[in-house]
């Protein structure tokens, strides 16, 4: 069976003046239908670039992105229209992602007008009302405007717009970061429910590990444009194999624990990534070999893969004491 989405050796380089910023380097990823994959990492890790490449908003420099087994770079206009129906997006800032001059119903209608032009106006508005109910807003919200809604409500509208065409995959770029804690929980539950009801796959980019753990079955950890670790969410966060995953976990504030004194500093510059393993400059376990050899993304058991020369030694397992 072909995967829904296959990312093969994907590289994206942004020219920036005289310098070249390698935003993504050798990304490999396969996503099955109905799966929920989380992508985590600090800013500069390339997670948003990956989302934009998958959405074909930017072109890859090397490698390929395959949708149902076919390279999207070779898509015809008709293929692309179908792709836009099957692969939709929810952005970070719910208010900015809605046109301030369109009513809620008009915003949700936009994709339908392109992808289901045969629908009559009453059929369309019935589908919009049903969608509004499904995202927990109620059809009464159709006539409202984005500025009359709260951030959480705007995010529900954006989700309704992404789901109205019955997509196979929804890419969510930091869908929680602009929301309040209690609203984040509501939106996580909504995504989980929609996924259960419709079988839509999710690709969730977020820096909030706890929310990713709740929503996603698998997680991919990125650092400076490379995959550090990919594993079922429960394993990655319960028993990480890569020291970078461990660092991210240790950074999460926990009730009843004083903050840890993390000495791992900030992300290295993506303009001059370190030789060998890009994480070695911040890694407590780095040895001489790490500066020379680029660790391959190697299978660790049947469900996980990790790019660390010392993963076998279990260096990332122990949580840091407070």
């Amino acid at each position: 069976m072909t995967a829904l989405l296959n990312v093969r050796n994907l590289g994206v380089v942004y020219p920036d003046g005289g310098r070249r910023l390698r935003a993504l380097d050798g990304i490999e990823l396969a996503l099955e239908a109905g799966e929920a994959l989380g992508i985590v990492g600090e800013s500069g890790s390339g997670k948003s670039t990956l989302a934009r490449a998958i959405l074909k908003l930017i072109a890859p420099t090397t490698g390929a992105i395959e949708w149902l087994g076919r390279d999207i770079a070779a898509f015809t206009a008709a293929d692309l229209t179908r792709l836009r129906r099957d692969l939709t997006v929810v952005f970070q800032d719910p208010v900015a992602s809605l046109d301030p001059r369109l009513s809620v119903a008009d915003s949700i209608a936009e994709p339908l007008i392109v992808h289901a032009p045969a629908l009559t106006a009453p059929q369309r508005s019935r589908r919009i009302d049903a969608m509004l109910e499904q995202v927990g807003l109620g059809s009464g919200y159709g006539a409202r405007y984005p500025h009359e809604l709260s951030g959480g409500q705007c995010q529900r509208v954006a989700i309704a717009r992404a789901m109205i065409t019955g997509p196979k995959l929804v890419v969510c770029d930091e869908p929680f970061s602009a929301l309040d804690v209690s609203v984040q929980a509501q939106i996580v539950n909504l995504f989980a429910e929609l996924r259960r009801e419709t079988g839509t796959a999710l690709l969730v980019i977020s820096h909030n590990l706890a929310l990713v753990r709740h929503l996603c079955s698998r997680v991919m950890v990125l650092y400076l444009g490379r995959v550090m670790e990919i594993a079922p969410a429960e394993d990655a966060f319960g028993a990480p194999l890569h020291p970078y995953t461990r660092l991210l976990l240790d950074a999460v504030p926990r009730l009843g624990h004083p903050p840890l004194a993390l000495e791992a500093g900030e992300s290295a510059s993506p303009f001059e990534p370190p030789s060998g393993c890009v994480f070695r400059t911040r890694c407590r376990h780095a040895i001489g070999r790490c500066a020379v050899e680029r660790p391959p993304l190697a299978a660790a058991g049947s469900t996980r893969a990790v790019a660390c020369l010392r993963a076998g030694e279990g260096v990332a397992r122990a949580a840091r004491a407070g």
């Binding site: 991210l248 950074a251 504030p253």
Partner: peptide, 10 residues
């Protein structure tokens, strides 16, 4: 970022 935030908290 979460890691930077942790440093500032410490």
């Amino acid at each position: 970022d979460v890691t930077v935030e942790a440093g500032i908290r410490a």
